[in-house]
Computed example of a mutant assay.
Amino acid sequence: MAQPDNASYYATYTTVLTVILVGVAFAAAAFGANRLLRPTRPTREKLLTYESGVDPVGEGWAQTHVRYYVFAYLYVVFAVDAIYLFPWATVFAAPGFGWVTLVEMFVFLGFIAVGLLYAWRKGVLTWT
């Protein structure tokens, strides 16, 4: 059994390392050029926190109700559902896709329906 040549094995990674270093150097050069070429005229108004055109009042700490995270989670679940459902619907009629893919999609939609039913039973979908 012949021993592999370690020098040629590791030489193949020099290309990857070179590409990474060139990418980091390019990003550093871009950020450096931006810092050198941009105009800087800081004023009191420019240094204020800006959010939706409303001047900041009070302290910056605010608590958010956990319910909003649940809505965001439900949105992500249904966005992923759409990502899988639309491509499947476009290729379903193609040859080779038959009853098996139809059953698989109904199983997938069943899992989504169970999640929606769970959220509905927990009262997450009511806005109060």
Rank of each mutant, 00 (worst) to 15 (best):
V16E: 15
W61C: 09
P95S: 04
Y50M: 12
S52A: 10
G23L: 04
I20H: 01
S52T: 05
A28S: 10
W61T: 06
P4N: 03
Y9D: 03
L48Q: 14
A25M: 09
V70D: 13
K46W: 09
N34L: 15
G53K: 00
A29R: 04
V76R: 03
G53N: 10
L74D: 08
M105S: 06
A30H: 05
A82W: 03
E45H: 06
A93W: 05
G58L: 10
P56R: 13
L36N: 07
M105A: 12
Q63S: 12
S52I: 02
A94D: 07
L109Q: 01
R121K: 06
F92R: 09
R38P: 01
T90Y: 01
Y13L: 14
G58C: 15
A28G: 13
A29G: 13
W61S: 05
V24Y: 07
Y73F: 15
L47E: 06
F86I: 13
Y9F: 14
P95M: 00
A25E: 02
V91P: 01
E104C: 06
V91W: 00
Y50E: 15
L48S: 11
P39G: 07
L85M: 08
F71Q: 10
F78D: 02
Q63I: 06
V91M: 01
M105N: 02
N6T: 14
T126G: 04
T90I: 11
V91I: 08
P42K: 04
V100P: 01
N34H: 11
I83R: 00
A93F: 07
L36A: 15
F111C: 11
Y10Q: 03
Y118S: 06
I83W: 00
L37G: 14
Y13E: 13
P87F: 05
M1N: 11
T12L: 08
A79M: 05
Y13F: 15
V66K: 10
R41N: 15
L117E: 12
L109K: 00
T49Q: 14
L48N: 05
E51P: 09
F108E: 02
L47F: 04
S52L: 15
V66H: 15
R67I: 15
L74S: 04
T101F: 00
L125Y: 00
V16W: 06
T18Q: 10
G32H: 05
W99P: 12
A93V: 03
G53W: 03
A72N: 09
P56L: 14
A93Y: 02
V57I: 12
T49W: 14
I83K: 00
A72E: 12
F97E: 07
V103Q: 13
Y50T: 12
A33D: 01
R121F: 06
P95I: 00
Y69S: 08
P4T: 04
G110S: 11
R38L: 04
F97A: 11
L17H: 08
F86L: 06
T101H: 02
Y50F: 09
F31L: 15
L85H: 01
F31Q: 08
T64Y: 12
T126Y: 09
A72L: 08
E45L: 06
A2Q: 13
G123C: 04
F92W: 11
L48D: 14
L74E: 09
P42A: 03
V19M: 02
L109E: 01
W88N: 00
T40L: 12
Y75G: 07
A119Y: 02
T40W: 01
K122W: 05
Y73N: 08
